[in-house]
Amino acid sequence: MLTLILFNLTNGIILGLFYVLMALGVSLILNLSNVINFAHGNFLALGGYFAFSLAPYLGYWGAFIVAPILIGVLGLIVEQTMIKRVYARPHVYSLLLTFGLSFIIQDMCRTIWGVNGLPLSIPNALNSPLSNQFFFLTGYRIFLVAVVIVAVAALFAFLGFTRVGTRIRAGTFDLDTVSALGINIGLLRALNFALGIGLAGLAGVLAGGQIGLNPNMGDNLVLPSFIAIIVGGIGSLTGTLVGGLVIGVASALTSVWWSAGSNVVMYILMVVILVARPRGIMGEEGMMT
């Protein structure tokens, strides 16, 4: 029983880390640009596929570095050509736009790489279980946890200690003032968008090694990442981090006793939070309006 609980706990943490990477990206874009990015999960899938196609030429490690960067650049192009044109419009337009993009990207993946799942092979060094009793602790999972920790730490350091990062945080609270201070908010939003999409690309490369690639692989991650943001508190990236881990662990632990409930539990958690603490775990008062 203990092994079973530990097994599910590990699964929950891994799942939670994917939610965290996704939700941080969605949250960055939501906070600064007021855009809910429905296509985030499709950028994740695209990240995995890019790594798959690059790996024969660059090796796993090369692909691991290059694929997320390419996805970030792609995000930048999408932002500059389309998303940026709807910032000034009612929210319904940005939602519909990313919704349409999500269809297009998913169909592109299906056409280019096929409907069937593909494996993203990982180096042998990462592939072996570390212990017989705890078979679920593979080298890859340890690696995955380490990468996410480094990425999240780097993101928070970037936002906390660099000039651009400070501007992004300031823009979350009051974009008009940031603009009035002479900062190019168009550029800021573009960089921020690319950063968020890049995180999705990274999540895609990591997910490809864990669960394999298929055109819908992001669909199961994008909606939970919305929940993570609501539970953690809109406007707070730390909250998003906590929210992602909480719902990941909660749904994995639920599946020990009630396998069908693993998806439902995160929504129940969300309703409870909304009733008991509407601003979310770490949300600022008034950010929800």
């Binding site: 439902v264 929504y267 309006t289």
Partner: peptide, 24 residues
């Protein structure tokens, strides 16, 4: 009590509750 984009986000989340119940 929510407005704007957050209202939209909650409507998405609530619709998914119904989806998962029907699914599970």
């Amino acid at each position: 009590r929510r407005t704007g984009i957050y209202f939209a986000m909650l409507t998405i989340a609530f619709s998914q509750i119904c989806y998962y119940f029907a699914y599970s």
